[in-house]
């Protein structure tokens, strides 16, 4: 050890090189590196490279229809995005979509999970039944709801008429279009909340409830002071997963309302797709993609770190 230090004093740069080479060979010889090599290749090729090239493209004025007219504009794309009202409105719609979608599916999911936890007979039957919505393609779900929402022949409107109410143009009205798409999200993903929370409820110990019963606590009090705290880890997982999924939503809006009428149901994701694939603006599209990537990743990472949910395995 000491001789190495002497050597280091005499020729520092050279030794650094040796050390680097040594640590490199140590990494390569580590079995973990070999196991991870295919993953690293995929991520560099399909994750890192596109992201880096997106950073570069986001600084260009680059329309696919005029490939000869590419210009370096530095931050101009970002500036015009942030200056534009349309971006902020889309962001606001995304926020509304996520908060209502996650919130309502959580409340409904918790309610149904509590009931399911109380029964024993036919439980599997109900569980399987609730599985169906969440494995259907979002594309199929979107078109099916588009059909049911139809003003002239949709089932919802004929039901409204039957009970003596007026027909509602769910998708053609800017006041209802966004909420109509939130309903699809809630329909498709509440079952996941149900099943996650049910898995949690099944693990709860019986003793606190017996104690509460003896103390004469009301059901409401038992719910808030025993069930909710004990269920907390599962509640966090359910909300986190729902949050991630509803931040990704694209099909429900693109295929059902096409962001319309006008831009009244446009979210960040559909705005991004419009810029990139209807206007062919690769520069602004990349910039928006990076903005969306940052917003969602930071939000989710913040929550994940806070909750300490996903940890790497123990080392051996």
């Amino acid at each position: 050890m000491s001789s190495q230090t002497d050597y280091q004093l005499t020729s520092l740069p050279n030794n650094k090189l040796v050390k680097k080479r040594r640590s490199f060979s140590r990494i390569v010889k580590n079995p973990a590196f070999l196991f991870l090599l295919p993953t690293i290749i995929v991520f560099v090729l399909l994750g890192v490279y596109p992201t880096v090239s997106a950073i570069w493209t986001s600084l260009l004025s680059y329309n696919l229809t005029e490939p000869s007219n590419v210009e370096f504009v530095f931050l101009q794309n970002y500036i015009s995005i942030f200056k534009e009202g349309r971006f902020w409105i889309a962001l606001w719609h995304s926020a509304q979509f996520v908060v209502t979608g996650v919130g309502l599916s959580f409340v409904i999911g918790l309610f149904i999970a509590m009931l399911l936890n109380k029964i024993t007979r036919f439980k599997t039957f109900y569980q399987v039944g609730f599985l169906i919505p969440m494995v259907i393609s979002p594309t199929v779900a979107a078109y099916n709801f588009k059909f049911m929402y139809n003003y002239n022949f949709g089932i919802f409107n004929s039901l409204l008429e039957k009970v003596g109410l007026e027909r509602i143009d769910f998708l053609g009205n800017s006041a209802t279009a966004l909420w109509a798409t939130v309903v699809i999200d809630i329909w498709q993903w509440t079952p996941l909340v149900i099943l996650i929370l049910l898995a949690g409820l099944e693990t709860l110990p019986k003793e606190p409830y017996e104690a509460a019963l003896i103390d004469g606590a009301s059901p409401l009090k038992t719910f808030f002071s025993i069930t909710i705290p004990l269920l907390k880890p599962f509640i966090i997982i359910a909300i986190l997963i729902r949050l991630m999924d509803s931040l990704k939503v694209y099909e429900y809006i693109q295929l059902v309302t096409a962001s319309g009428p006008g831009t009244s149901s446009e979210t960040l994701n559909t705005y991004l797709a419009t810029v990139g694939f209807n206007w062919f603006e690769m520069g602004s599209g990349s910039a928006l993609g990076l903005i969306a990537l940052n917003i969602t990743s930071l939000l989710s990472l913040f929550l994940v770190k806070k909750t300490n949910m996903f940890k790497a395995g123990e080392e051996h």
Partner: peptide, 11 residues
């Protein structure tokens, strides 16, 4: 976690 749409243009 990232929305696939964000990878659309670079991909």
């Amino acid at each position: 976690m990232a929305p696939p749409v964000a990878f659309g243009v670079p991909f």
